[in-house]
Amino acid sequence: MRITHIEGTALPMRGDDIDTDRIMPARYLRAVTFDGLERHLFEDERTGSAAGDKASAQHAFDNPRYAGASMLIVNRNFGCGSSREHAPQGLYRAGFRGVIGESFSEIFFGNSLIIGLPCVTAAHDDIRRLMERVEKQPDARIRIDLQAGTCEVEGFTCAIALPAHARDALVTGAWDTTGLLLDRYAEVDRVAARLPYVAGF
C-alpha cells in the first residue's frame, strides 16, 4: 500500500519523553497477538486509574472532543524506552494513521514505519501552533503531504520532515520490508560466507 498523505482530525498529546511503558503498560504485552491493544493506550494515566483519577486535567485520550482522531500530535523524543512494537500497534489499531511531533525515539520510529504509521517531524513552534489550533478547534482537519513535505490545517501551513528513506518507503509502498529483504537472497548468502564467525574461524 502506498502512503502519500494523511488526512483527518488530530489528538494533541502534550509532553516530552513520553515512553512506551506509558503508551502501552507492560502487562498488555502478555499475549501472543496484538489484538485489543487499542483499548489500553495510556491506561495507567487515564480516567479509572489511580493516577488518572487524581490528575488535575482530563487526559487527552479521554477527551471526547478528540474522538475519531486519526493523527497524533506530540512533542520531543516521543516513544522512548522499551522497543515494544505494542505501542505503535495500539495506536494504529485505535485508528491513528500518522504521528507529527518535534522528535521521535529511533526504535519507535522504525517500529511505526514498518507497520505503515508515518512519524513526521516539525519545528517546535509549528507543533505548538498545531496543538493550540486543535485544542481550540478539535474538528479542524489536518492534511499531511509526505511528498511535498507540508502540513496544512485550515489556512495554516508548515513544513514537515521525514528521512528520505522513510518517505520513499511510504510513497512507494515498500515500508513492509520483509519482501524487500528476501528479494535477492543470494547476496545475503554471499555476505554470510565472507564473515569468519559464520564460515568458521
Partner: peptide, 15 residues
C-alpha cells in the same frame, strides 16, 4: 534492539 516486525524481518531474511 528491534520491534516485533523487525524480529519477523530477521527471522525470515537474517537481515
Amino acid at each position: 534492539g528491534v520491534g516485533t516486525s523487525q524480529v519477523r524481518d530477521v527471522l525470515a531474511s537474517q537481515c
